[in-house]
Write a protein that binds this DNA or RNA. Structure first.
Lengths: 186, 186
DNA sequence: GTCTATAATACGATAGAC
DNA sequence: GTCTATCGTATTATAGAC
């Protein structure tokens, strides 16, 4: 696995996280990664869409690892999820509200127009949800409630990131952390 | 206020709701609205960005009206918000999972790249949140909790729409409706 | 006022030198 | 393998006929 190839993927992740799929041009990816245009089509002969899919998968694995670590850090799911949201708030703030919604922009742009990108996003969300759901099952919730709550947690993560980035303020993420903690102790 | 001008705005709303800002071309807007290119720049001499801002404001007012009607439809905030999310689920489903996140895509694309669009999205979210917050205050929650919960409700609406559209399944919206109802009765 | 034709530019993708 | 130059086609925006 080449080093420059990884750098192209990393740059694609970063730019599409900030701007989305269509707003991110291949030229910009090449400029910021330092790679020339020939290299891009050598490594990704199938073009922009294939590159975006690899970027989504890379980001998905990264978030999944963070989620797993976060869930393992506390016994009670409420503590784990609250802590995860607070850590996310810190991350969004230190990025200057540029990072945080790794695949959300692509998910929305492509939800009804691009089948391949949609599938990649769908897989990512389901992986994340399964991690949270497993933690809730361990925590003693009923199976049906664990599934519902896991879905809600992923929705809250995505939605609160959008609000925080739009408002340039981490309050939505911190508020969500607090209230989801309350809900999980009901 | 011209009729054709309104039609251009309505088409812009619809297309950007599905595809986002950058993926929606002016040519496509003109094709689908039936207006010629000359008309667009007659009505919107400041170009695409100004058109998008008017589209955001139009959508924002529409959602605000729906939210107000939804909040007034039940005495208890929990019932009102649960009902609103279920109605939203129905709307997303009947649109074939194409509609629902009216300004979310633009909010993400422009969060860190376009100040004017970002401001328009920020205003929309704050208007919606104020409507929910007022209902929660009436419902007897403390001021600080009403603010936190209103923020969470808007985040859940946005996040659950994203998941439902990506998965082509209204379960995330319906799950959110159920669990937010539980939380609001804590 | 309404429209067509077109300019200027950026895009994704490719061809071919080395 | 790595790169440069370039193609064809989108894009936004404008100029000018009627």
């Amino acid at each position: 696995m080449s080093n420059k190839r990884d750098e192209i993927i990393a740059t694609t992740c970063r730019l599409m996280e900030m701007q989305g799929y269509h707003a991110t041009g291949l030229n910009q990816i090449l400029e910021e990664s330092g790679a020339p245009k020939g290299s891009l089509y050598y490594y990704f002969p199938e073009g922009k869409e294939a590159l975006a899919i690899e970027a989504i998968e890379h980001t998905s694995r990264l978030i999944a690892a963070n989620l797993r670590a976060g869930m393992a850090a506390h016994d009670h799911p409420a503590d784990a999820i609250t802590d995860f949201l607070q850590t996310l708030a810190h991350y969004v703030q230190t990025s200057g509200f540029q990072a945080g919604g790794p695949i959300t922009a692509i998910a929305l742009e492509a939800a009804s127009t691009n089948e391949a990108l949609n599938a990649a996003c769908r897989d990512a969300y389901q992986d994340w949800q399964a991690i949270v759901e497993a933690k809730l099952n361990e925590g003693g919730y009923t199976a049906v409630r664990a599934r519902r709550l896991a879905s809600l947690v992923i929705a809250v993560i995505e939605g609160a990131i959008i609000l925080s980035r739009t408002q340039r303020n981490v309050a939505p993420l911190l508020d969500a952390a607090t209230e989801i903690g309350v809900l999980l102790r009901c």
